[in-house]
């Protein structure tokens, strides 16, 4: 296994940041930790990159123990923290050179690994890192995390605060890196990015809710979901909440995802009910569960 985590726990004062977490990541896998702020993603990254010692449990990275073999791990992994952590006063080129030197290598030696990414920021190589746009900082941070050709890459919320165009580019880059035999552990609060991973762990409040492939996770949703829409979203929500047969009601953009307690649920009954509440343009259609539906069901 590239990463093996077994019964890891960690608390700070009165917060249980991680509670008995276990999972494995296979060599060459792109594994996603999906969860909101406070799920424990960053704590987990800090333990796996040897920056924090767990209270209980064991973890190995490339078969090395994170507590006893921390020095060897630090040489063989790349880590891109959630907060931009490069030297703001150094230029793009100086930062990259600095990280290469720290790891006893040169930019030239592993240039082929970062080429795709670095060419996009190379025109600005004389600019200070602090003066870069968000998308460019992200590309520089990734280049620095890759410059020593790590076996495992840790990316803590690399796409948070990044616009959709840069997000897409970033995921395309990850897919290409994966083909170069790098194992990738990536965290994100965006549920739509889950589908881009080989396997995911859904996390909330220090616990793992479920681990599987994205396709298998949505299949586990226990109910049939209906997209319900009408002329007035606020009244639609209020009416559905007052409908005694509802199992779950979640706004999803222009629709409400509705599921019913009854096994013999008939959409015509619901339609008639909503019409009796003076709603119009009512539309009820079956829809597939998303990762977000599953997450909410598990987190209830």
């Amino acid at each position: 296994m590239s990463i093996s985590v077994s019964n890891i726990s960690k608390s700070y004062k009165n917060v249980n940041a991680l509670q008995n977490i276990s999972f494995d990541v296979k060599p060459g896998e792109l594994f996603g930790l999906i969860g909101p702020d406070g799920a424990g993603k960053t704590t987990l990254f800090r333990i796996l990159t040897t920056l924090l010692v767990p209270d209980a449990g064991h973890a190995t990275v490339t078969d090395l123990d994170v507590v006893t073999h921390y020095k060897a791990i630090r040489n063989s992994v790349g880590y891109m923290p959630g907060k931009f952590s490069l030297y703001q006063d150094l230029t793009v080129e100086e930062n990259l050179h600095f990280f290469a030197t720290i790891f006893g290598t040169t930019i030239e030696e592993n240039y082929d690994l970062i080429k795709d990414i670095y060419v996009q920021i190379e025109p600005f190589k004389k600019r200070r890192a602090g003066k870069l746009s968000g998308g460019m900082k992200q590309k520089l941070a990734l280049s620095c995390a890759l410059i020593h050709k790590p076996n495992v890459l840790f990316l803590d919320e690399p796409t948070t605060g990044v616009d959709p165009v840069s997000r897409k580019e970033f995921w395309d880059m990850l897919k290409r890196l994966q083909q170069k035999d790098i194992t990738i552990l990536v965290s994100t609060p965006y549920m739509d990015e889950a589908a881009l991973c080989d396997r995911i762990a859904l996390m909330q409040n220090g616990k793992i809710l479920e681990i599987d492939t994205p396709a298998a996770i949505v299949k586990h949703y226990p109910k049939t979901i209906y997209n319900v829409s009408s002329n007035n979203m606020y009244q639609l929500l209020e009416s559905l909440k007052a409908y005694k047969h509802h199992y779950s009601i979640y706004p999803f953009g222009e629709f409400v995802h509705y599921s019913d307690k009854r096994t013999d649920f008939n959409t015509e009954d619901l339609k008639a009910y909503l019409e009796s509440r003076n709603l119009s343009n009512i539309n009820i259609e079956k829809t597939a569960a998303t990762i977000e539906d599953t997450f909410m069901e598990l987190a209830k």
């Binding site: 909101p36 799920a39 549920m191 606020y234 009244q235 979640y250 706004p251 987190a299």
Partner: peptide, 21 residues
């Protein structure tokens, strides 16, 4: 609602719908 869990995010949008209403 950036970074907020999906359930809380929806409670937040319900507050927005109410204010708009």
């Amino acid at each position: 609602t950036g970074g907020v869990d999906p359930i809380t995010r929806r409670q937040f949008w319900e507050m927005i719908y109410k204010a708009a209403h």
